[in-house]
Design a protein around this nucleic acid. Structure first.
Length: 428
RNA sequence: GUGGCUGUAGCUCACCAGGUAGAGCACCGGAUUGUGGCUCCGGAGGUAGUGGGUUCGAGACCCAUCAGCCACCCCA
């Protein structure tokens, strides 16, 4: 038991797992680049006020989940609980919103919650935000983009897209009143939490997990009856675009989201493979946020995907990332090691596509080959006394049955070129 | 913030009416003095999460605390 442990809810991501993370992230980068989105990097710390105002003062995130502290100047700062607020701030501050923009970001987020499966206090999101386009084609592009990512990861079969329109703030205001009025007639049939939320955040009652409350909700008014014509048209056009692109989805008129800034389109990609935390990706449209941050009125939409949950999903489905070690360099003693080190350095310079590990610290050939085997290397390069004395090197196959061969310098170069080529092809 | 379950070797776990710890895997070495994967042999590794209590004696019982897992709340 070590003296120090990581802070609760903040996990180490170990070398064994990082290849999967890198694959996940690289796939996202590829897809985003293929859609013309550009990366933005913003600070992890912002003024507390930025989050409070955008996410909503009375949301759980702001009320009890933020890591907030005073800096040495007595300014209240917070670790970011999500990425949209910082992104909008940066876009406005840097004057980038005079044209439409497509951006994405990747990084850690922080929420002070009780950890459970698929939930950490420090977790990672890839977020995608599009500014300047009010029409539903933008919503559709974001959804198609996300689906391409799932396809490349091989998880599209286990994900479901849930969609809803929560309309304008007027519509939500009217709907809230109707919902509260309805629920007040059934006070005795709903759970305590929901009763409490009646005054704090009535829309959240919609996704209560309490069976009695759900029964009551079956007779509740639906947000869809409160949408104005513009919101309905937006919703219907989005549905049409998705259908044309064969992206199937389910309407869920109980889908509301925990952040205040959304309007019209909201969505979640969910799975039944992860226990209680079923949402892997969520987002929607937020046409009012830019103006609220002092920019000129700019429509926007976006989503964020939780990387820990996607990793969990990849692991459940037993999808793996390859760890590529091509060569493991073995030598006999101090003299041959110094030769081997210089030669390995040369190989790395001349064949940058190869992954080469040199055995360090000496030891018997036997133990060095055990290491070579465990490294997963395809070949061992052997610099023994005989080889070094005659300017040769032996290559031994570790993953196939062939015989080892002793090569001249030029034969080795041919061998390495072929290997580098094969290795690059297998990566694509 | 609330609830349930769990904390013994790096990992997965055992033992035991309460009498000061064991296996498998992993690790290191040897059988093979220049060659891995299989097999065999050997070795190292633990103040039993931490603190207190009950007891002649506690890893085992009790309390507290910390941590992990899962669920609620809420969210990615």
């Amino acid at each position: 038991m070590s003296q120090y442990r990581a802070i609760r809810g903040m996990a180490d991501i170990l070398p064994e797992e990082t290849p999967l993370w890198q694959m996940l992230e690289q796939t996202a980068r590829d897809v985003l680049m293929a859609h013309g989105y550009r990366e933005i990097r913003t600070p992890i710390v912002e003024s507390t006020d930025l989050f409070a105002r955008s996410i909503g003062e009375v949301t759980d995130i702001v009320e009890k989940e933020m890591y907030t502290f005073l800096d040495r100047n007595n300014e209240s700062l917070s670790l970011r609980p999500e990425g949209t607020a910082s992104t909008v701030r940066a876009m406005v501050q840097n004057g980038l919103l005079n044209a439409s923009q497509r951006v994405w970001y990747l990084g850690p987020m922080f929420r002070y919650e009780r950890p459970q499966k698929g939930r950490q206090r420090q977790f990672h999101q890839i977020g995608v935000e599009a500014f300047g386009i009010p029409s539903p084609d933008q919503d559709a592009e974001l959804l198609l983009l996300s689906r391409q990512w799932w396809r490349r990861l091989g998880i599209d079969d286990v994900l479901t897209l849930e969609l809803n329109s929560i309309g304008s703030s007027d519509a939500r205001h009217n709907y809230k009143a109707a919902l509260v009025a309805y629920l007040q007639q059934h006070l005795d049939a709903i759970d305590d939490d929901s009763r409490r939320r009646l005054t704090t955040n009535p829309l959240r009652i919609l996704d209560s997990k309490d069976a009695g409350t759900q029964t009551v909700l079956e007779g509740a008014p639906s947000i869809s009856d409160f949408l104005d014509d513009q919101s309905k048209a937006h919703r219907d056009r989005l549905a049409e675009l998705l259908s044309r692109a064969s992206l199937s989805f389910v309407w869920n008129d109980r889908l509301v989201r925990g952040l205040d800034y959304y309007n019209d389109t909201v969505f979640e990609w969910t799975t039944d493979q992860l226990g209680a935390q079923s949402t892997v990706c969520g987002g929607g449209r937020y046409d009012g946020l830019v103006q609220q941050f002092g920019g000129k009125a700019t429509p926007a939409a976006g989503f964020a995907a939780g990387l820990e949950r996607l990793i969990l999903l990849l692991q459940v489905l037993e999808l793996q990332a390859d760890e590529l070690t091509d060569l493991y360099v073995v030598s006999a003693d101090e003299t041959t090691l110094s030769h081997a080190m210089a030669e390995t350095d040369r190989i790395r310079a001349d064949y940058p596509g190869l992954s080469v590990t040199q055995h360090l610290g000496g030891g018997s050939f036997k133990s060095q080959f055990k290491r070579a085997d465990k490294s997963g290397a395809k070949w061992a390069l052997i610099f023994g006394d005989d080889e070094v004395a005659s300017g040769l090197v032996t290559v031994k196959p570790m993953r196939s049955d062939g015989e080892q061969q002793t090569l001249t310098a030029s034969e080795l170069n041919k061998f390495l070129s072929r290997l580098e080529q094969a290795s690059e092809e297998s990566e694509d």
